[in-house]
Design a protein around this nucleic acid. Sequence first.
DNA 1: GTCTATAGCGCGATAGAC
DNA 2: GTCTATCGCGCTATAGAC
Lengths: 193, 193
Amino acid sequence: MNEPSHTRTRILDTAQDLVQRIGANAMSYQHISEAVGIRKASIHHHFPKKEDLLEALIQRYSGQFFTWLDGIARAKVAAPVKLQRYIALFEATLREGKHDRACPIGMLGAELASLGTASAALVQLFRKKNEGFLTGVLQQGLKDGQFNFSGDHRATAALIFALLEGEMLVARGAAGVKDFSKVAKQMLRLLQR
Amino acid sequence: MNEPSHTRTRILDTAQDLVQRIGANAMSYQHISEAVGIRKASIHHHFPKKEDLLEALIQRYSGQFFTWLDGIARAKVAAPVKLQRYIALFEATLREGKHDRACPIGMLGAELASLGTASAALVQLFRKKNEGFLTGVLQQGLKDGQFNFSGDHRATAALIFALLEGEMLVARGAAGVKDFSKVAKQMLRLLQR
DNA sequence: GTCTATAGCGCGATAGAC
DNA sequence: GTCTATCGCGCTATAGAC
């Protein structure tokens, strides 16, 4: 099991940070070069095309995220607790670093038209997996009587995902982690009572 | 009362369409030039800097939108109907043209870090006005017993706005107007029962 | 108000030495 | 694996003729 080279990791870290703050279109090899302390040509050695870099970035983030999702799904806890843990994943992403960082996949979702087909497919997969996870949690909660609402589970799952991603993307600057948490809490409240 | 020149309007129309589909960073004077059938330099005559163009675009869209908001707010109808009309505003934006078009201000919100201070302020204003409108509708609905939920009105207003903007931004490609409407309907349901 | 022409820069990407 | 050097392109923006 080979560790990925340190430089490769630092490039991905920097690229992800840039995507979260300014988006993939505004991010450049020059930016990364300066932040990592390496020349542009060296970045091309690790990621020949920008599309390769974006694809790797999405793969890495999605992989981590899916692992966390699985952990939450398997846990023997009540559905509302699972939902709170899910929300905490987003809050952790939002909190890293001092700047306003959105979900990297959410940013790329907004820029979907500029992505290659491989990256675009991964972005769509991310959404599907998240909505699948949420659908499961909602079903469990309804069965156990912890949630109480009518209507389609899938639409409700899509609602939750869009809400959390949207709050990160659109509520930049003015809001912060605190406002994000407030909104997320209110969503939980609407599902329970 | 002078009509704005036809060319200026066509430039703004094209720019808005591009922002909705690919974002402000990916949009260029070259794109607009080809779509409008005019040279790049002529666009600079109407909008010297790109920032000027974006600012005008936001002003125009916000102005129309705020007028519609006022109309809905003043109407003598029940709160859920107002909310439905509000949702219809977003659906109309989504439906224009055949492509996946998000809310232009939502796109710019995601790209906030790339905007000038004037444009950024207008984007924030758009969110505040929307949340203010929604807060009013929610209060009316609670007073009249048409809505039934506990918790902060403002957080709920932010929730609705983030949800609608997020659904437009993140659910590109796979979803469409139909899925958008489903999710919006489900939100209404959660507020009422 | 639109045009041609061009400046000046940053971008992604490649070749080839070390 | 990192470097220097460079290519070719598209971008925003400006000058000046018509």
